[in-house]
Design a protein around this nucleic acid. Structure first.
Lengths: 178, 178, 178, 178
DNA sequence: TATGAATGAGAATTCATTCAT
DNA sequence: GATGAATGAATTCTCATTCAT
């Protein structure tokens, strides 16, 4: 009932509007922003938000799921380096997502979505190693760890483009293995 | 009156107990933990916490200051690689500190303490470059960015020792410049 | 959403009950009385009070507005002397209102309502001067000043009917100009 | 122990400084100002204030007593009209005193001091009636009521000199009985 | 289903008062 | 006597969640 998409057209529309609003609000103010603010931004009543997402954590989980799915999609269109650049670049705009990936007290369980992203990155890594641009000794876990770390850093560090490029350059050099 | 350390011995003791309690509580639950909980853990009344630190942010700032000062001290006893390892290793236990370094909505201004840490790391970097173990093209900003990123990653990613070692290995390879 | 009166019937009823309770509570204990006490007297939860009046000052302002509006209404049904008598007579029962008219630290901005009262009294004054029962040299500002002063005095002085009559008699004699 | 002046010279000095500070602080911020602020202004520790005045109300009562005594003194040097002018003129600067005369929730019992003031004003009234400048039908209670009312009005109404003069003129005309 | 009002458990902060130093 | 740290009840305000309309 909660997971599956609602039947009625207006309900589906509301669900989408709520997700969009939530993404925007939590991106701007972090997960501390109130659900009321999300409702306001979505143009629906607070009750509607809670009907679609019984708890705030459910709403946050839904955002994450959607965001991760988008990342998976984007991963298929780039090589590993470009993907890193892309993800890190938009990390700062996704306060909520990064907070969530980070934990930040909220209890959000979305193992599947994370798993899918891991798979996608795994494919990029394999490709890069096939191409010889990443050393063979590197494994997926540390690549994921680096990706997550850099997102956090980018988000909270307020990096400008230049700093981001230089920081990624160090990590890329490390991945290439010299 | 409020800024300097208190004169009386019992007040100093309480101040320290509050800081210790706050560090523990915020480390465990993040900055969302209540000041009341800190007071409870410190074994003092809530008013005592607010007498020492007029706002919650002041308390958080004090924790950060102390932690950064300790890091500066620790930086002098290690080379850059060992320092990275050390800091990242204990990052996971310092939820609050990392949250704060991260921003997380709380308004905590401690520019001096951060500056001192930057200086200390700068010295380690210079030394490492003198020793030829880090490539000359690397600059302090990206080193700080990497350090902060890895702390975040370690904190929120729940890395085990092995993953941490492998992740740092990639970054260290990048710093060495191959 | 917050400003206008609520749409739903039950909300309107609650709003009125809260205003009534607040008027009673603040009349009895002054503006220092707690919002919690108002909620209790109104038979609603504390959150409901704050939903209707986001800050305590908003609640106080709303009371004042309502009271001043009632005064304006009452001004139209009496001559200036009767109006003075009437207002001063009930002043003692309106601790909060008088406190507020008085300032008392609370920040309550209701210029319009005050302006309307001033207009109403201005009309009474003009009428009285037309009728020749008040000397022509008297102006509105001092009439308002006297009215406010007497309210304060009546409130805090604990006047009985007799003292009130005698005090007003002096002021009325002054207004008549002998 | 509490009422009588303390024996030791420094204690007497402290008592006076505390009273001065309290008068200034409460005049500026009203009776809501904290006792801590009074201590700060007096340059003593909070404990010293409470040693001299076991409760805040005791402190307020002491201020009132002193102020009323001064008024009594001043009453002997003027005629009734000048005294009214004088008292009303400085009312605005004596927020606390007026608040207290007013009641404002604080429990301050100083019947003697008020009685003395009443006596002094009684003498002025008798003199004025002897001189034929105030009509014989006016009695002391309404004169006191008018004085108190006008102080409140002046304090909270923010009267300028002109408005004050015009307002007093009406009351004086009433007292003269035309 | 949607609405939005009501609930009530916290959370931060203040301050009169007490008491150890 | 003076100091100033500690206490803790009280207060304002927030917000996730429930439920009547």
């Amino acid at each position: 009932m909660v997971d599956g998409p609602p039947r009625r057209a207006d309900a589906q529309r509301n669900r989408a509007r709520i997700l969009d609003a939530a993404e925007a609000v939590f991106a701007e103010f972090g997960t501390r922003a109130s659900t009321e603010e999300v409702a306001r931004r979505a143009g629906v009543a607070i009750g509607t938000v809670f009907r679609h997402f019984p708890t705030k954590d459910d709403l946050l989980a839904a955002i994450m799921k959607r965001l991760l799915a988008k990342l998976v999609e984007e991963a298929t269109e780039r090589d590993l380096f470009a993907f890193f650049r892309h993800v890190v670049a938009q990390a700062a705009a996704k306060k909520a997502a990064v907070d969530l990936l980070a934990g930040s007290g909220v209890d959000v369980r979305i193992p599947d979505a994370v798993e899918h992203l891991r798979d996608a990155v795994g494919r990029l890594l394999a490709q890069a190693q096939d191409d010889g641009v990443i050393t063979a000794s590197v494994r997926l876990p540390e690549v994921m760890a680096l990706l997550a770390s850099l997102c956090q850093g980018a988000l909270h560090g307020g990096w400008d483009d230049h700093l981001q490029a230089r920081t990624l350059a160090v990590v890329f050099a490390g991945l290439k293995g010299c």
